[in-house]
Write a protein that binds this DNA or RNA. Structure first.
Lengths: 352, 352
DNA sequence: GATTATTATGTAAACGGTTACATTATGGTG
DNA sequence: CACCATAATGTAACCGTTTACATAATAATC
């Protein structure tokens, strides 16, 4: 009864009405074709085969825009990252992607260059693309953005930060504790004049937390972090070099530098080499993140391992749960651990 | 005459029928709202204002899926890159993105890990997302993919390769000539035992071209590149190290290594340092790409500068032209240039 | 001021799927 | 075998825009 009527069965002139073509070819209705792809177990085995065969024959690729329209769901997740030039973030989105694709979700990436205004733009653009959920980095951002998401009922997760006290869900490390631990490690080596290079802490809460953690460790020793020993720079190897030079300018007897991430730290390491400062003999340099490069370089970089791949998987899972209406922990802690390599050691006196 | 009728003017329960809400609020038809955003000069100034005001008030964000459905155009471009872990590609997509956004196009990125099968999957997924155009890397891929694109009339550009003789449009450097020039540079220093580390040349035409270029330079000198001096590895610093170790195992009197990209080269540089081989005294190491890191490291890496940011802009422009139906050159050449730094020099004899 | 060209807006039919609901086939029971 | 529960499929409305075409407003011309 459902066979081709033979008179209008050309597979559409150039690609229009496409699910209909498959339906006609297989001799079923469009609803059945749709079900075949979306809920195969609700379709009789034999019909399934016919539809698959027809789809294959016609080279059918469903139109996700139409799907999104029809179903009110796009199966797309958006993620906003501050930069794509730090492999810590590419690892993260790689892991996100991988986990999401298992549930047939697709990832849309927006990059905002650490600029809150771009971040807002990119979020709008993600929403325009119809994402079902959003992943953000950190928690510090304009209230407007949170309201935008909540107003549209778009679930989201703040990644890269662990903030149980925040009203918003989060998955990430406790940078404050990690920074404290790292600083303690340096203090135990006898370092007293410690410098700090990081991103701008006013727009970046991770940087602010690292700063707080350092102060946490310094205070019991009656030490502090004066302004001239706290440098904020944009992110690049070169800025790590600049950071170190600036620190040394004001504090020539500096004995240790904490860098908010390994990019700065590696830059500082290069600069130390060029300045003929022996590491760790005269200067200890430590970082955050544990990039692949940090293990390769020599001396190896002492750093705080930040398992962003694991974080990506956890974030994805949390978001997927939320999308399925299942409850999830409000804040998930990602463990970091101190990795000690050759770039740090006891203070051994200056040769400068 | 078009004012609210007052009885069903609630701004939609939770976000449905949205362009209608703006239309109602502004007292115009949905067509006018649509025109307001898409061809503002076809709308009377005063109406424009009213619509913008209404849109702002209702926090209107158009639904791009619906737009795509209605207009048959998504204003999305897809790009397929082999990896996101090499900053040469992040620079590239950054530049692409930037140029495309000027024309209000959005970029969708797919990563295929140098695996042709993934590449096919990702291309399907891009098409499913309704991209208006596609950017690929290199030209060597299954015919099916080309047919898929052509069958659907989706314009595309092969980036990272300059192939005027290919039937497909391309924008990129001439790796063969560049490799030849780089090799000549080493030969002129007296190097005769040269090793080569690169990606797998069977699936990667850029690697194949670099290989060909090296051979081009060696042949006139009656030299060749025996198998044991040609290593193919996946892409990572560690694989650069492995590559160098393997080369030295079979050819202990190696005097120079050409790496297909700077990641390998930097890995090799690290390995040389760990093996106490002086660079460039005992061994010259050169690469391709000119990463930020290659200038920072010491010794600085001699390499072939590959302006991927420029390439991104050119690729974007070519694709945009094509989308507007304007003719473009079939193949565009991106200039590379040799950057000489400290990692290469005359052969000065072994201490091994 | 009637007529015509031009500009601004409205009307309604697509676009390609999904899905609630209706209908038909299938299989199990007494 | 009539009856009913269940499984499989079909019908058609709907999602939020765009756009061809129709119509209304405005400007230009005589």
């Amino acid at each position: 009864m459902h066979e081709n009527d033979g008179q209008n069965s050309r597979p559409s002139p150039n690609g229009s009405g496409r699910i209909r073509d498959v339906a006609r070819e297989a001799g079923v209705s469009t609803a059945t074709v749709s079900r075949t792809f979306n809920r195969p177990d609700s379709v009789k085995h034999q019909t399934l085969e016919r539809v698959f065969e027809a789809a294959r024959k016609l080279n059918y690729i469903p139109d996700s825009a139409a799907r999104a329209m029809g179903s009110k769901v796009s199966r797309r997740i958006g993620v906003l990252i501050p930069t794509i030039d730090d492999s810590i973030f590419t690892r993260f989105i790689g892991a996100l992607q991988q986990r999401l694709s298992k549930d047939r979700y697709t990832l849309l990436v927006g990059v905002y260059d650490f600029d809150p205004e771009y971040e807002a733009n990119e979020l709008h653009s993600l929403i325009e693309s119809g994402v079902d959920g959003v992943v953000l980095c950190g928690a510090r951002r304009s209230n407007d953005l949170y309201e935008l998401l909540q107003g549209r009922n778009i679930p989201f997760v703040n990644a890269s930060i662990y903030s149980p006290e925040s009203p918003y869900p989060s998955v990430g490390p406790d940078f404050r504790s990690a920074a404290k631990e790292l600083t303690r490690y340096l203090l135990d080596f006898g370092h007293r004049k410690i410098g700090f290079i990081d991103l701008a802490s006013d727009t970046n809460d991770r940087a602010a937390l690292r700063l707080a953690g350092i102060v946490d460790a310094l205070e019991p020793e009656c030490l502090s972090l004066p302004n001239e020993r706290h440098i904020e720079r944009p992110l690049s190897f070169e800025d790590g070099r600049i950071g170190l030079r600036t620190l040394l300018e004001y504090t020539p007897d500096l004995t240790a530098v904490i860098c908010g991430n390994d990019v700065f730290a590696i830059g500082a390491l290069f600069e130390a080499k060029d300045l003929d400062i022996s590491v760790p003999g005269e200067l200890s340099i430590v970082g955050f993140d544990n990039l692949e490069l940090s293990a390769q370089i020599s001396p190896g970089l002492t750093t705080v391992n930040f398992p962003t791949a694991e974080m990506g998987a956890r974030v994805a899972e949390k978001l997927l749960m939320t999308l399925m209406g299942k409850p999830t922990p409000h804040a998930i802690h990602i463990e970091t651990n101190l990795i000690i390599r050759g770039s740090s050691g006891p203070y051994r006196g200056l040769s400068r």
